[in-house]
Design a binder for these strands. Structure first.
Length: 513
RNA sequence: GGGAGCAUAGCUCAACGGUUAGAGCAGGGGACUCAUAAUCCCUUGGUUGGGGGUUCGAAUCCCUCUGCUCCCA
């Protein structure tokens, strides 16, 4: 039995189309999923859409359609975009699906049985025009007026079921304190801890005024509100609480990759819910940062919004892998990021000039000087050879470590650094000059061999980030990754006599306007 | 108002309290032709935000000032 690995993105709110933020989170999760898959693990990768709630109702009304139809349409848009940027999710859950509905109701039943849910009343600032509650912060920021209509907010009270979050807070706090890796990165973990210490109220989990949602099994006049519905997806998708929970037993607990704005809910509500159910907590929760664009907050009116169309244009022009590489290497995983044309070009040039060119010149020289067959490395290694061999041999460990520590930026850039060094090696050893001197044939063989080994390892390491291009590059080296694990591929060398394929630019440069 | 953090080269960032504070990019100079007008080498550039302290030794620890960010209310 292979080791299992379960990883998730959040479920996205489909009241609009996906944008850079969604794509980033999904790509990072995908990169991790692909690495673990490459390591031979049995990977289950879940993403999906969170389709209930007042905003769906309103957006649908504005568009003259129904929430269900809006969700159907946009869930499909999300699915298609993920296809286009190479996402390898194994499941896609929609919270309107029957499997989720039934399972959430079962979850509530179990919580009710545990006396963790009770009827109380929810009081807050209510925007009558918008027919929705606004948070205390939001109300204050808008001077207790509706940001839409400008009319004063009213104090409104309605019955609501509550989850006894407060009961579990001490346990959650203890768990987070005792498991430093549970919530990452560190700075976010500290924020959660300090907020937990300040004390937390019980959580309102139902709305009687809303109809678009999952009815509470114990009181169908109420629908399940936001987090109880949304967070449950991570286990309802595995069949938790249904007749067949084999996937749940196989894959749970998993790793959650999320944006920093929803860390609180994942780090506190979700563990508390699982404690109430008596189920294991997630293995890890990693919160990534937010994007700005050209140094400013993304906004449609500013014209710097990286929307789905822009993502499609970039993927269409430069390829999905160039987009993926850019996103992953743009900043260290966990910190905020900034999308700039200049940085994108820089990152594309790394792929084309450093990685692609290194592969290309190596293949072309072996083609020209050795009839496309990898020559044997002969004779004693010189210091410069030794340095390249060491760097090549270290790559597997370095990349593995980077992935296990969620340092996706390093994982993406380490192979590029090896390609950079290989370029330097080729320039320093000058195989193209050695080729002119028959007496240097042995030396030439060594240089070509070591260059080929290095670029091969660089490409293997990049498979999770560049699922299509890395494999394409390896195909040029006539290396198949079919059925092979990361360790097997990284431990292997191209044998002497190995016939290479045809060398073609991996990331062709585009015509400049 | 409460809490946390950051400040290092033009830019993005590194540097268990321990040699001369390092990379990439950008800038300057040069080399090369296997390769995608690609590549490589050399190089300019820093009083580590200011001030004080602890220490044999501080970018790193402490205090303080300034500026910025984040979380919460």
């Amino acid at each position: 039995m292979n080791k299992t690995y379960y990883i998730t993105t959040p479920i996205y709110y489909p009241n609009g189309e996906p944008h850079l933020g969604h794509a980033y989170c999904t790509v990072c999760t995908d990169v991790l999923a692909r690495f673990h898959k490459l390591c031979g693990e049995d990977v289950h990768f879940l993403t999906g859409t969170d389709e209930h709630g007042i905003k769906m109702v309103k957006t649908a009304a504005q568009l003259g359609t129904e929430p269900r139809a809006l969700a159907d349409k946009n869930a499909q848009v999300f699915r298609e975009l993920w296809q286009e940027i190479g996402i390898c999710n194994t499941d896609f859950i929609r919270t309107t699906e029957q499997r989720h509905r039934e399972s959430v109701q079962e979850i509530i039943r179990r919580m009710v049985a545990r006396d963790d849910i009770y009827l109380g009343s929810y009081e807050g600032w209510y925007d009558e025009g918008q027919e929705e509650f606004v948070t205390e912060t939001e109300a204050k920021n808008n001077d207790y007026r509706s940001p839409i209509s400008g009319r004063p907010l009213v104090r409104y009270k309605e019955n609501s079921y509550f989850f006894r979050l407060g009961k579990y807070v001490p346990q959650v706090l203890k768990y987070i304190e005792e498991h430093p890796d549970f919530v990452q990165p560190e700075s976010r973990r500290n924020e959660v801890i300090s907020k937990l210490r300040a004390g937390v109220d019980d959580l309102s989990i139902s709305r009687a005024t809303l109809k678009w949602g999952i009815p509470l099994p114990n009181d169908p006049e109420h629908v399940v509100y936001v987090w109880m519905d949304a967070l449950s997806n991570y286990i309802t998708a595995l069949g938790y609480g249904s007749g067949d929970d084999s996937l749940y037993r196989k894959y749970w607990p998993g790793v959650h990759i999320i944006g920093k704005e929803i860390l609180w809910f994942h780090a506190v509500y979700w563990p508390a819910m699982l404690m109430s159910l008596g189920e294991p907590l997630p293995k890890q929760i990693f919160a990534h940062g937010w994007w700005t664009s050209e140094g400013k907050k993304m906004s449609k009116s500013m014209g710097n919004f990286i929307d789905m169309q822009k993502l499609r244009d970039v993927a269409g022009t430069y390829g999905q892998d160039a987009l993926r590489y850019y996103m992953v290497r743009a900043a260290s995983f966990g910190s905020d990021l900034d999308w700039t044309e200049a940085d994108f070009n820089k990152s594309f040039n790394e792929l084309a000039n450093v990685l692609g060119n290194c592969l290309n010149r190596t293949i072309k020289m072996i083609g020209k000087y050795r009839e496309g067959k990898v020559p044997d490395s002969q004779g004693a290694l010189e210091a410069i050879d030794q340095a390249l061999v060491e760097k090549t041999n270290k790559l597997a460990d370095e990349v593995r470590k980077a992935y296990l520590e969620y340092d996706l930026q390093a994982a993406a850039m380490l192979p590029i650094e090896l390609a950079r060094q290989t370029n330097g090696y080729i320039d320093a050893t000058e195989p193209f000059k050695l080729a002119k001197d028959p007496e240097k044939a042995q030396r030439l063989s060594t240089v070509l061999n070591l260059s080929a080994q290095a670029i091969m390892k660089a490409l293997v390491s990049l498979i999770p980030v560049l699922p299509s291009k890395a494999v394409e590059g390896l195909a040029q080296l006539n290396v198949s990754i079919e059925g092979k694990t990361f360790d097997e591929l990284m431990g292997a060398t191209l044998p002497a006599g190995h016939q290479l394929g045809e060398g073609k630019p991996l990331f062709p440069k585009l015509e400049r306007k």
